[in-house]
Design a protein around this nucleic acid. Structure first.
Lengths: 158, 158
DNA sequence: TTGTGTGGTTGCAATATTAAACCTGATGCT
DNA sequence: AGCATCAGGTTTAATATTGCAACCACACAA
């Protein structure tokens, strides 16, 4: 009767959620992407129980989202930093942010705006483009079965 | 000792997660965006317990992500469809999908590819652009305090 | 070497998830 | 109309996860 795992699911959305789709993981990742690195920083920032934080950090490391490195201040402690796989989550954070900016009932409670570092101006909305450069909305897309490509090997060996 | 709510948080990422950041909601929304509408369809597709599905649907309706409409086949049952606020979640689903496509260890287990309906070709990666059209990565962005604008009213009345 | 901060682990109470049984109104069949 | 069945839930009870607080070990500072 465990919480059902989505790890084996064929839907890529479900597979992503299986990795960091729980209540806290994305917030930890957000904090990490803001430069937080230490256990105590995460705990203070998120206000979650220490045991929960400990297990989340452990599984995020196991799953290759975070890695531990020796503390940057020379002390014997360790720090948690994003791997490339973890940095790849950035667009998801942006998408979540932009959804709130557009649809939240109390946008005045949002504390920050994402700006480009160079000019300091707010970024544009994430754009989904076709290969020939058209902007696509949900209605302009469909899902197709994935081309078999590598899966063929299994059939060959069978 | 309830599950801590993120509703009042000032971070837009947290606010979004508070609305649909639990284990099942995003998958229900994904299904809805694929055209599933009926309780039984969701249940069969997701394989979750019916009581959980019932409560999730109820809260998603309460929060303005889904709305109920009379069944499209003329029967007396109701169906669940996305509101505009719900359709706005589409980019988040795309971002999750693309993360898995890029970083999953077993990409061969992904069943589908998102293509543009016109040409049938895979869509490009979501792009974050500055106002002058440069492509931005995480490192090219910062967060700035939100311009006070409407918040001023509170200060005035104080 | 005594004290304090960091980074956890452990135990327990509260809450959430799950599966399965049950219920109710709608639909279909004759 | 009368009966069976289906869609869409609710209820119940077992199990799992969360949250809090107390505890612990090591690092570091005086």
């Amino acid at each position: 009767m465990k919480r059902t795992s989505l790890a084996g699911d064929s839907c890529p959305v479900a597979r992503a959620l299986d990795v960091f789709g729980d209540w806290w993981s994305l917030l930890i990742i957000r904090d990490a992407s803001l430069g937080r690195r230490r256990f105590g920083e995460f705990q203070a920032s998120l206000g979650l129980a220490k045991n929960i934080l400990a297990t989340r950090l452990r599984t995020l490391v196991e799953r290759g989202i975070l890695k531990t490195v020796p503390a940057s201040d020379g002390s014997a402690y360790q720090e948690y930093v994003l791997t490339p796989k973890g940095h790849g989550i950035f667009p998801i954070l942006v998408a979540l942010r932009q959804w709130t900016e557009e649809f939240d009932e109390h946008p005045d409670e949002i504390a920050t705006v994402m700006v480009d570092r160079d000019k300091g101006k707010p970024v544009k909305k994430l754009a989904l483009l076709s290969q020939d450069g058209r902007v696509l909305g949900a209605a302009d897309t469909t899902l197709k079965p994935r081309p078999a490509a590598k899966r063929a090997r299994r059939l060959v060996t069978a």
